[in-house]
Computed example of a mutant assay.
Amino acid sequence: MVYRGTRESEETDRMLALSDGVIAIAITLLVLEITVPEIPAGSPLSVLPSLIFEQWHEFFGFVLSFLVIGSYWVNHRRIFVHIERHDRGILWLNLLFLLMVAFIPFASSVFATYPDQFGIMFLSGTLALTGFTLALLWSYASRRELVEEGLSSRVVEIQAARFLASPAVFVLSILVAAFDPGLGILTWLLLVPINAVLQSRLVENLEGEASQSRVRTSK
């Protein structure tokens, strides 16, 4: 007879289904924060394009939050590709991550309504905390040896760096926005090159390990 706790530790389908559902709903809710502008009484219809353009911050907040949630979903998926079993700690940390994801649409709405220093810092803080919960999830799983056997410490470290990269950029954005809100927004662009470099290093290490494994097998 298989111990019940063992069966539960190997069941991840329901946890992943819940995670995918929460993330999908959060992404969908983002677009609801974009309002349709009202044409002032007596104004011609031709003013509509300019009114929509004035809402650039709403579109920017939507795209940024969508891409960040999407990247966090990708990282979440990569974590559970390597996790072979889980415990209560994983369950609660995953719920903490989902709590932050579910809060992102509200933070995006705050930024869309108040695209000033506070709005930038509030959205950046929310996205940073969300990323840190994901990094904490990976750190916990690797320290408790819940990840697959044979995963090198180098790969674990690069993955950890990847999970910390995005929240670190948002923390930097908060600090910069305290002095210059516009520059604080520009710091978000650092997400692209930093994640690209870390992804490249991760692929190189994984390919190197796979090559060494094939060599050992052929001997």
Rank of each mutant, 00 (worst) to 15 (best):
L91N: 01
L91G: 00
W92V: 08
W92F: 15
L93Y: 11
L93W: 12
N94W: 12
L95Y: 14
L96T: 14
L96S: 14
F97N: 01
L99K: 00
L99I: 08
M100Y: 08
V101G: 03
A102F: 12
A102C: 09
F103Q: 02
F103W: 12
P105L: 05
F106W: 15
F106G: 01
A107C: 05
S109H: 13
S109M: 06
F111R: 09
T113W: 08
Y114H: 11
Y114I: 10
D116L: 08
Q117A: 03
F118D: 04
G119R: 03
G119L: 11
G119T: 10
M121L: 06
L123P: 03
L123F: 11
S124H: 11
G125H: 07
G125V: 01
T126F: 13
T126D: 07
A128H: 06
L129P: 08
T130I: 07
T130C: 10
G131I: 04
G131Q: 02
G131P: 04
T133R: 00
L134Y: 07
L134G: 11
L134P: 05
A135S: 10
L137N: 14
L137W: 13
W138V: 00
S139K: 07
Y140W: 14
Y140R: 04
A141P: 05
S142N: 08
S142Y: 10
E145G: 01
L146N: 07
L146F: 14
L146Q: 10
V147W: 06
E148W: 09
E149G: 10
G150I: 08
L151E: 04
R154G: 08
V155S: 08
V156D: 12
V156Q: 12
E157M: 10
I158G: 01
Q159W: 13
A160F: 15
A160G: 09
A161L: 14
A161Y: 13
R162T: 10
R162E: 12
F163G: 00
F163I: 02
A165Y: 01
S166T: 14
S166V: 14
S166K: 01
P167W: 01
V169S: 03
L172S: 03
L172M: 09
I174D: 00
L175W: 15
L175G: 04
V176M: 07
A178W: 15
F179H: 09
P181Q: 09
G182M: 07
G182V: 04
I185Q: 00
L186G: 02
T187K: 05
W188T: 09
L191M: 08
I194Y: 12
I194P: 05
N195G: 04
A196T: 10
L198Q: 04
Q199A: 15
Q199G: 14
S200V: 04
R201Y: 13
L202F: 15
V203N: 02
V203I: 14
N205R: 06
N205G: 02
L206F: 07
L206D: 04
E207A: 14
G208Q: 13
E209T: 12
E209V: 05
S211N: 07
S211V: 06
Q212Y: 06
S213M: 06
